[in-house]
Design a protein around this nucleic acid. Sequence first.
DNA 1: TCCTCCCGCCAAGCA
DNA 2: TGCTTGGCGGGAGGA
Length: 818
Amino acid sequence: LKTPLKQAATSQLVLTERQPDCQPLTTPPKPKETPPADPWTPTSNLKMLISAASPEIRSREQRRLLSDSSSEVLQTKHCMQEHLLGDEYEKSQPSRKEKSLGLLCHKFLARYPDFPCLSQKSYICLDEVTEELRVERRRIYDIVNVLESLHMVSRLARNRYVWHGRHNLPQTLQALRKVGEDNKYIQQIQLIKKREYEHEFDPDGERNEEMASSLGSSEQSEMSFVELPGVEFRAASVNGRKYKSLRVMSQKFVMLFLVSTPQIVSLEVAAKILIGEDQLEDLDKSKFKTKIRRLYDIANVLSSLKLIKKVHVTEERGRKPAFKWTGPDVLPNTQDIKLEASSTTCSPPVSDSIPSKEQCSKALFPSKGKQNFTRHSSLIKLVKSIENDRRKIQSAPTSPVKISSSTFQSLPVFPNTISQFPAISKHQLEGQSKTTEEMQMKCALFFPEAVPKPEPSQQPALSQPLGVCPASHSPMSPVILPHPQSGVSYAIYLHPSQAHTLTTHSPGFMLQPLPCANVTGIRSNNSKVLNKITTEEGGTQRGLDEPTKSLAAEERPETKSETSSQRCLKRSQALPENNLIKRRKTDEESLDTSLTFFPSGYLIPLTHCTHGNKAECSSKEKAGLCSLQHSAYSSPITGVIPMPASELKTVNIPAFHITPLNIMLSPNSIAAAPVLSNSCLNSSSTSSAPNPSSSALNFMLQHIGLIPAGVQVPANPVLQHVPVSSQSENSSGSTTVQEGKVIEFTFCSPINESNFLFSLQPSAPKEAQEPQAVTENFFRTPGGPNTEPSLSANSEGTQRTSQGTLCIPQRKLEVSED
DNA sequence: TCCTCCCGCCAAGCA
DNA sequence: TGCTTGGCGGGAGGA
């Protein structure tokens, strides 16, 4: 009598395969009961290498093992059935989840490489698959049909398919997008949403027929399977059920993602569109339910392929299941998608529809003369990425950023074969450079006329006016401060009100509002129809989303007075995250942090725009630009902010804004830095509460060992050690910091120089000030919550900075000035 | 209660 | 005629 132990071993195998990070062709863990391995002889070594190199051989081996074990399992099953009571037997069966199509698809995909060698076709025999996966044939058809729709497999003969992997995927997606555009799916989606909206006021259901006829009257006729040249479609029932097949449905479903912005499609809308195309008269509930069922089937497979991801769309009428496209970007009219269909390298195409910057710009601004800001998918992505960055930082707990396989997950799925590693690395690098380009585009997209022209003669110079952009588009309008000596420009982020002032006072500087700032030109075609969308992306994402929701909720009371930029901000915050931005979390984290913590005024060296990619650092890297993770925060050479006093005098930053703390200031530079400005100080000068910050600060500094136990650091060391320039002399006085604010500071070691600065929150209206998340840790560093700020100095004596965030929860901190 | 989707019937179509 | 393919919807597990 076989015991259920065997069954347990089987489910262990299932669990192993359920690992989300499980990639095809990973070497299966050796069963414990396996006898000791062969001696490490050259023959066995060769055997193993051959096995590792050839999926066929490995597959055969696996098959042999599986067939051995499957017969045992069958026997076990039979015995169990005989010896266990009905209930017990049912309990011993795998749960519903373990039999899901998604899991099955994972197992199916694990059998084949993502990018198989084209010289060596791998075939799929359905009998074998059903046997090995121990699943009904019917289920395999579901998977194969969807894969067929993406041309990842094609039917060769009865019971026999060819595995293409992802080689054809970019082409397929491009074709699907094109067909989707031709079929005007976007209009259909808008129409459906519009009808839904109207239906709220006309709930008698008469609209259904109208909608159906509208959908039917659209130009697109019954659509057939989208084929690729060279990938023939040989369905068994070519004529009969072709148009209803899961294949075609799957393609249409994918098209909806590819043409819509944001790339989120609710099942309801998808089902309606699919029904609308099929039989208009059957827009009844049962038909609808059936379509939804099929869409779930398709979505499960697409999710396993990591092309989509389940989310929920919250609309006025409730929460609806939807899916978000997480596959490669597919831009319209991209002609030069190159498939690296090399038969020798087996490498994945490293540029899955990733366009060059030029193409992106071309697509964004096709007509040179007229630069209307239309909502373009690329544009939306940039806005999304920025706002999601902000959202992530704002809402994220003080946990370290995990840079692991999850980072890779945001990329197009790669096989994990060793031979493809170079391609992966290359792709990573390209992704990084792409992100850099994105950053550049973020700088240039919205006000391209404001970006310095690349001509050498037009190099930005301090004395040369660079043009002024429309100000106050954003709550944080950056001012670019070029610094030719270092080749690094800095941006001062100011409040709009200050930006106005600054524009007035300093025509020599360029105002460059943040992307997303100007929303007047960025209007979705369907924004009127689209509802407020918030996405919930499962457990891990939910935590990030919650603050967004609360943020939105908190902003509601002031909706009337909100500016367009604020509306944009909110809308952008509601937009789904962009996976691209994950690629360089490490490099961008510092920038993100500063973006997050200095909503009022701060300086951001623009090295990220130009040298953001470490891999791209060449000669400048030697100069120290990219040598440090924190290079963005310190001067390339001296570690001090390259900002002469004259510049700051010119800037004349008016209101209560404390200079960036994430920048090291030399005493000379600090002399001119408008460390404090005055408006708020004056208004609150009467407040002279006890100063708890000093003790708190000293406690912290002592706690982390930055100062000896006996040493006391004044609460406002900046002010004590920094002579205030004449321009900022009216910043004298004292101020009371609003409660619950985050103070971020940078240490410049040695600490007894005391030249670290506080960044305080702006003197914005209280209701506009978001209560910052009070962290459990006093210090928030890029390294994580438990990472203490580090102090070090290099051999040249250049001081490294490390920054931390001091959160003062719900208490007043008074910064007084002598 | 509703969402999700497994399961298997059964018909179309192929060899 | 037997087998493959796959549309379809009942109904159960799970949230």
